[in-house]
Each structure stands twice: as C-alpha cells, then as structure tokens.
Design a protein around this nucleic acid. Structure first.
Lengths: 335, 335
DNA sequence: CTAACGAGCGCAAACGATTGCGTCAATTTG
DNA sequence: CAAATTGACGCAATCGTTTGCGCTCGTTAG
C-alpha cells in the first residue's frame, strides 16, 4: 500500500505515480488513468509523514490554550477546528494549564514538530521568550491574549468597548460604587480590561478606590474569594463587573453563600457570555460575541498568512454587544 | 541542526550520535559526552517526523468527540491531554460535530496519519464501519459511547446505576409520573440510559407511558422542544430525568418560558453534572463524576494497552453519585 | 533526410532519523 | 606469540514520498 506498490501495478515508476496522483506535470491520459485505477484498486492512501518529511510542511496547526475546559477556549477550539479542517489542516492540541512553563514547553514541542502554524491564547508569555522559542520559524496568530507587534496576526475582543458598555450600563442603573474583578495581569486582555475600567470609571467620575479593583486568578474559586473580600469592605460596592465568565460565576457563588441578593444588594455584569447565562440565578447580563468566533477568525487569519509570508501583520477585534438580563438590575420579562 | 550536524561536531558518525542521544548501545563515556555536548551547543532538537518515519510510531493519539464545545467532552479532553502529555504523547484533535460521516472521515485521517492510538467518543459508528476503517490497525479505546467487544478498551459512565439513583430519588420525593429526555439512540450510552430507565421505572411500578420518553437530539434546543411537548400533554409528568447536561438546560429553558416552576410544578434531575449546576435557577441536582475522569481513564487504558498488543480488552465504568440540589425538590440550605 | 525540439517518463537524490551488521583495534586466552 | 573474543564505532539500508535532471522517443521544421 505504498506509492511504489501503486506504481508497480500501474507499470510506471514511483515518480510518475506521484505526479499522476498529485496532478502535476505532463503525461499521457492513459498513464494517469492507469495510476489512478491502480491506486483505487489498492485503496492507496498516501502517508502524510513521508510526504511531510520531503515537502517540509506538515499540514498541522498547533493550538495552545490556558484551559480547554473553560467555555471560551472550548468554543474557540471548536470554531478554529472547523475552518482548519475544511482547509485540509489538522490540530495538535496543547493545554498550558495556565502555567507559563507548560506553555513554553508546548510551544517548543510544536515548533520541533514543525507545525505549519500556531494558534496561541497565551497565558502570559513575554516577547523575549516568544522570540527565542518561536521567532519567525512558525507563523503564529495570537488570540485572546495578544503580544503587541509579534506574530502574523492577532484577534482579541474589543476590550475597551466591552468594558465601556458594561460600566456605562451600570452607571445608567444609578451605580457609582463599581468594583472590578479580574484575573492575573499577565496577558494583554486582562491588562486592557483593567486599563479600560480605570479609564471609563474616570470618565464617569466614579469613586473607584483601589480596594474596588481585585486582581486575582482567572478561576471560579479566586473570583469567589475576591468577592468575599469585596463584600467585607466597610463601604462595599453596589455593583461589580467581572472580567470573565469564571470570575462572574465565582462572584455569584460568593453572593449566594453570604446571602447577598443579586441584583438587589449587588449588581453583577460579566465580560464573557456563556451558553447557560440565561438560566443562572439570576440570569447573567454579559457581553455577547458569536460563540467560537474568536477561534474561527484566528484560524482564518492564519490560513491567509500561510501562503504569503511577507504579508503585514493583521489585527482583528471582535465586537461585543450587551445582552442585558437580570443580574444588572434590568427587569426580565419571562420572555 | 540535524543529527548529522551534531555527529560532525562531535567527530563521530550519525549512528553513534543517535545511540548516544538515545542512551542505547555500548560506548566510551568520552564519546557519549562529546555527543551530548555537541547537541547542547547546537541546541539540537530531534525531528519527530523523521524519527517516526523510521520507527513506525508517531507518539500521537487521535482524539475524536462529537462536540468539543460540550462540557463533558471538553472536560474529558482536558483529562486525557494531561495524562497523555505526561507520557510523552500528543493529541491530534478531531470534532465530528455529531455527524457520522465526519466521524468516519476523522478516523480515516487519523489512521492514515498512523496515530499510535485512538480515543473515541463515537457519535454512533457501527461495528462494520469501524472494522473497515480502523480494525486492529490502531488500538482504540472508546469512551462515553461504546461498541461492545471492539477496541482495546472502553470506559463509560455507570449508566444503569446512575439512572437508578436518579429515578429512585424522584420516587422518594413521591413522583410517579416521570418522563425521560434523551438524545438520539445511536450510541451505547444513550441506549443504556433509556434501557435503564425502562427497567427501573418498571421495577418501581411507575406508569410510564410511551409519551413520557422523548428521544430527540443531544442539544439544548432539542431538549427545550421536547420539554415543551411534554408540558403540552394531557396528563403531563411531574418530574423529568434528562439524560445529559444540554438536555437538562433545554428543559430548564422551556420551563422558564412556560412559567412552570421547578421543582414545584416539575422536578428535574440531570445525568451529567456541570460546573455551574449549583448556580442555576434552580440549582440542578445531577450525578457527579470527577471532572475529566472519563477522559483520564480512557487515556490510561490506552497507554496500558499500547505496549502489549495482546492484552485483553478492558472495560471500566466510572461510578456516579448523586448531588442533590434544589431542582429535584430537595430543600437547599444556603450552605 | 537530418537537426532541433518537446512531451512523457524514469533515475536517483534528497528529507532526518534508526538500526542490523560488519570492521577494526585492543584485550584476553591458550 | 598466535588466536579468539569483545567492545566501540561506522557503513549503508531503510521508512514513503517528492522532485531536479536527464534520457528516449516521436514529431516538426529546415
């Protein structure tokens, strides 16, 4: 079942068989036909490894995320997978588990494997390390967390716009004491959201004491703990904007434990939407982006960059829109 | 940066360099040392493709699921990924999108790539097709959905036990009119759960008319639609057991739309737990399995099977336990 | 009728590793 | 001291493809 078998059966050389199957070079229709038939009869399937060794491309894309279990990344993976497979590529998946060393190890492995491209939601790699481990050996598009000016592309949510929508919505509800819950400031999305919050809060003339911005980890447990601290403050906030789905869930959990009722005692809005947001108690108002859109877009950017190495770096923002449910204080008709 | 470069710099042949780096064969410590140093100085990293071509194993595992976006599969992927990477393997991921043809195509690709093993949550492949596409060319462990007696292993939830717990719990709450919401009966988990429901319902002497078992698709929308039908019945059920997370969410959604209050008007229990179950309105009682355990176990079975091809097929059931929250009618203290 | 040309195809060298076998020298044995 | 043994290493084949180059025809032009 190797190319040579096909060639022999068709009575030609391996080179001719190869060219026939790949449709390149000139040849008698009869010859081509013979090869095709032989291949069909033998159920010949080319061996990608051997081909890759020769052609220097693997048709494989490395995909690295902090946590495949998290809704946003799982959805992104789904989006990317679809468009990549359609283009004939495969995904080699690595989960960095929000650990920078794991992430670097993953990148190293992927580069060693000579993946044709990288889709990276970094957990906070720095420019220097990235240049050392990847450099321009492998085209990389960042998504979610972004490193300025590095890689062939970047797609991230419209962090400033999103935070603005969230904060302004809370302000419209009359809130002045608004807290901000975010994860570690190791990657750009986290930083941008914090910066945006400070900016917008300033514009709105809010009194946002330092106590009100809590920078913890990106998981539910941390969100819960941070909220507990917030609730224990002398003058506790009347509203909180959570910078991620998990953080919002942690906040919800903390409130439930403490018996603080949302939105009566505390309003809550979340940056990430999730597919079950509507079914939470209370339904969570959040920013909506088409599910998996980030991953899909990132994959597309990468696919466009692959054939033309010289192309300029492209940057995309995925727009966000508010879906107001109950947790912000909006009345919820039961649909 | 090839092995030959290392060999030259160390003043030995490629064979010796290879043996030195792999620690096989006898050789002077000095020689080994020289090779190691040369490799370090050149930052030599072996090229997996070339190695694989020769050794006939790729250190890659194919992972196929119906939907990476779904909580259960994302968690499984996470579990499997971790143990596989620890063992030096990588994951090539394919999403069948609950489409049998896509699944078959994925398997074909994976087999062509000569992955060393397969982790497959089938969307309903039949024995014949599996034998044709995979056969015993590639060791496969099934998880979630299982094909009897095929593959080197299988891990699935304790469907009978789980359903029994769920139904009996509802019966303890006094329910007699219990409906069952399941997805397509194309794979074994779905079938087992239905069968289990029928069995347990019979044992408990419930009147479970055919109208009460709704077999739709596995997504939220279908669960919603099916629930709507259930609610429209002349004598509608007082409780429903949903065979998956998405189905439970769909049911929740339908109830919310129709203004039926859970658990007062309708009790609901779910087969799958999810990380946000506690925060739903109402908190969802469900069966708990350690997150990602299914995937982890499947990966372990596969890893054990890889070195000994003759080993008997292993089958594992992951045990389930009830975590009673409010949706079944249990009182929920606010913790 | 011969020269030039091009179409059609094969030879063999890559790609980068692993590995069976052979060689050579140093050592041990008789 | 010759022969046998063994340890350390190199040669070359191999895995399955792709591809540059050259060969051999048949055709056309001069």
């Amino acid at each position: 079942m190797t190319l040579l078998d096909v060639a022999r059966r068709a009575g030609v050389s391996a080179s001719t068989a190869s060219r026939a199957l790949n449709g390149i070079g000139e040849m008698t229709p009869a010859t081509r036909q013979a090869v095709l038939e032989a291949a069909a009869e033998l159920r010949y399937v080319p061996f990608p490894l051997a081909r890759s060794l020769r052609t220097r491309h693997t048709m494989t894309i490395g995909f690295v995320v902090p946590d495949v279990g998290a809704g946003f990344y799982a959805a992104s993976l789904r989006g990317a997978q679809h468009t990549l497979v359609d283009a004939g590529y495969h995904i080699m998946l690595m989960d960095s588990e929000r650990d920078l060393e794991e992430e670097v190890a993953a990148l190293r492995t992927l580069v060693a494997h000579r993946v044709d491209g990288l889709l990276l939601a970094t957990t906070g790699i720095d420019r220097e390390t990235f240049e050392r481990e990847v450099g321009d050996r492998t085209p990389c598009v960042f998504f979610d967390g972004v490193l300025d000016d590095v890689g062939v592309g970047a797609v991230s949510p419209d962090n400033l716009g999103g935070i603005r929508i969230l904060v302004e919505h809370l302000v419209e509800h009359g809130h002045r004491r608004i807290a901000f819950l975010s994860g570690a400031q190791t990657e750009s999305s986290g930083r941008e959201r914090l910066e945006a919050f400070r900016l917008v809060a300033g514009e709105a003339g809010l009194n946002a004491p330092d106590d009100y911005v809590r920078l913890c980890d990106w998981d539910t447990g941390s969100g819960r703990a941070a909220t507990l601290e917030l609730l224990a403050l002398d003058e506790s906030p009347t509203a909180v904007v959570a910078a991620s789905e998990d953080l919002a869930l942690g906040c919800l959990q903390a409130c439930r434990e403490r018996g603080v009722e949302i939105p009566r005692d505390l309003a809550l809005v979340s940056f990430d939407d999730c597919y079950f947001a509507e079914l939470l108690a209370p339904p969570l108002t959040a920013l909506r982006a088409p599910a998996g859109e980030t991953g899909r877009l990132a994959a597309e950017l990468l696919l466009e960059a692959l054939p033309n190495p010289g192309a300029p770096r492209r940057e995309e923002r995925v727009p966000l829109s508010l879906v107001a449910r109950a947790s912000c204080g909006c009345p919820m008709d039961q649909r």
